[in-house]
Design a binder for these strands. Structure first.
Lengths: 351, 351
DNA sequence: TGTAAAAATGTAAGCGCTTACATTTTTACA
DNA sequence: TGTAAAAATGTAAGCGCTTACATTTTTACA
């Protein structure tokens, strides 16, 4: 059924083309697409037929420009290499899709400057809102976001005192709880392998959590040896060896995440140490790797998928002006597996 | 230094504002941004100062609409839950970023219909090009892409006979090589745990590879027992138990990917079987999990990061009309670890 | 210094939508 | 059936850029 106004088959049809073949105005076509109940069933059918006939789909650049809203949400995460972010992002994307939103992704590689650049980029690309990891970033970035009226949600961290909306968990208390488990078993000398803390509040908070537990247990700062490194199995191994190569090595090594912890476990076994008989090791995140490690990891379980899901819902509510309290604190749980035990009895005569 | 034409501080500055405060035309500002060497150094400085002063950044919706190009590339992958895609995507994004492109992400959950929908969505959102996983999809989808002139690159698979540009590897031959390793060790009865093959050409190709090796070794179809399931550790375990619960169980179980294989290994140990003494198990992908499994996995190493990287380069070249041969076949390598050994000698008197 | 060509800049239309406001059609009810 | 109000539809401006073409300025060289 060729219309006289059929298009050359290699042209992308526009809304105007649809209007012409349906015999209505462009406004009506637009309404069919965006405000379907302002339109008669009869015109709706006509328009939909035209759309099908032409294979029309709207140009979002134009739509965004005209409407001042893109239905696109940006996420800037440190890296998809870590399953915890990849999983969270997956859930986030699924939830966005349910709500007709699309996901723009960028990664910062844990670099403050790069993150700032990515925030600018995704904003310019029209992200209506942003998912960001952790609170730490220059004040000017927050000011920029406010000026541009871009809602930004903080995930993977939760600070009830912050003005930012967030969906996350209390890194400090979570790690404190785990440290308490460690100390309860009698460890008095701890090692800690952390991510670089300079621009990573979550890493800092986790360390603070350990220190909190230490203080409560009446131990000294000196009883905690900290190494900072980048997240990777390899680096976990190296750091572990370094921690253990002192006169009185720690009896338990806590790690800032599971990836580091797996590296530590590997190195321990390689050094001929039994885990946990000779040394205890703990992780954080509870990724799949954790239960698969040579010795299954005692760690903190973080509900990453739920976090991604809630983050998406919260952001969409914010955009829709459903201004309920969008802050969500998710609980974490301690996951006791095999890598945590009592300290070895190094000197049975002088326990 | 307030200009008379300063903006209300809560308005997002536009290119026209920049032009006004720099005292040039909008065309000139646009050139400074997009064709910098068509512009005097003096005007460049003036414009850049104005941009800084106003905190201007371009509106990409408008730019895209006017230029007919978004510098946005879409990727539709089955899921970020699997590290292999997450990693590849990470590398892909990094490479795009180097070239000033942004990444739109959608996931299909291995569902054909959902993938088709996502292709439509990302296209409408203005993706200049698409990264797709595998070849299998309805012909109409390819036709749609051609009509819209959206280059689509196929990754994670490689078929020299296909018209589509692709950056991937030969799933069939890769799995065949691994199967040959298995058969060489004397296994005569194989189990295979596959992803659902209905809309997954990579899964099908891998099975074909095993069959190729089987035929070459003079074995029968009956010597290969196949179960299809969704990718997950859990499902790997279940499928493994099922495969082993027959009168004459296989002596080696090959798996469509590492995730399934890890599940199989777990179940084997749970069933009291020694790996590889009682049963051999193999994977595919060589994700981190593979070397961390309770028994380190013999598997096929796939260079996922390089694949993501090359895919990005190839797509960008295509968009820039650098029409060299954009097809890249990457080599895979067999990774022999601990889960593969000779078959158990069930009946020593009748070997 | 004058002139032609090249380089830099400006003018203005147009990309494909949305939406405020205006107009027409339908509905509800006397 | 006539009328006012409500619902549906249409008109046209405008979102913020890019770029073809026109104009002005600079450069190269006699």
């Amino acid at each position: 059924m060729d219309e006289p106004n059929d298009l050359p088959s290699d042209m992308v049809p526009t809304l105007a083309d649809v209007a012409r073949t349906a015999g209505v105005s462009t406004a009506t076509v637009s309404r069919c697409l965006n405000l379907p109940d302002q339109v008669t069933e009869k015109t709706m059918t006509r328009v939909m037929n035209a759309i099908d006939q032409l294979g029309y789909s709207p140009n979002y650049s134009a739509r965004s420009l005209a409407a001042g809203r893109t239905n696109t949400i940006g996420a800037i995460i440190p890296t998809m290499d870590n399953a915890i972010f990849a999983r969270g992002l997956q859930a986030f994307q699924e939830e966005l899709h349910k709500n007709g939103c699309t996901l723009l992704v960028a990664s910062s590689s844990y670099e403050e400057d790069l993150e700032e650049e990515q925030i600018k980029t995704l904003t310019a690309r029209g992200a209506d809102a942003l998912l960001l990891i952790g609170y730490h970033r220059p004040k000017r970035v927050y000011e920029f976001l406010v000026k541009r009226r871009i809602p930004a949600l903080i995930a993977w961290a939760y600070d009830p005192n912050s003005a930012q909306i967030s969906v996350g968990f209390d890194n400090r208390n979570a790690m404190k709880s785990l440290a308490q488990e460690v100390l309860r078993r009698g460890h008095k000398k701890l090692g800690y392998i952390s991510a670089h803390t300079a621009s990573n509040d979550r890493a800092r908070d986790r360390i603070s959590g350990v220190k909190d537990a230490l203080v409560e247990a009446g131990l000294e700062q000196d009883d905690l040896q900290i190494i900072e490194t980048n997240y990777s199995i390899e680096n976990g191994s190296t750091a572990f060896r370094e921690l253990m190569s002192v006169d009185i090595p720690p009896t338990a090594v806590m790690c800032g995440n599971d990836v580091l912890a797996v590296g530590a476990v590997r190195m321990a076994l390689e050094m001929g140490l039994r885990v946990p008989e000779d040394v205890s090791i703990t992780g954080f995140d509870d990724i799949e790797l954790a239960s698969m490690a040579p010795v299954p990891l005692t760690t903190v379980h973080v509900p990453h998928r739920r976090m991604g899901q809630f983050a998406a819902q919260s952001l969409i509510n914010t955009l829709d002006n459903q201004l309920q309290n969008q802050n969500v604190e998710l609980p974490t749980t301690i996951c006791i597996r095999k890598t945590l035990g009592p300290p070895p009895n190094r000197d049975p005569w002088n326990p």
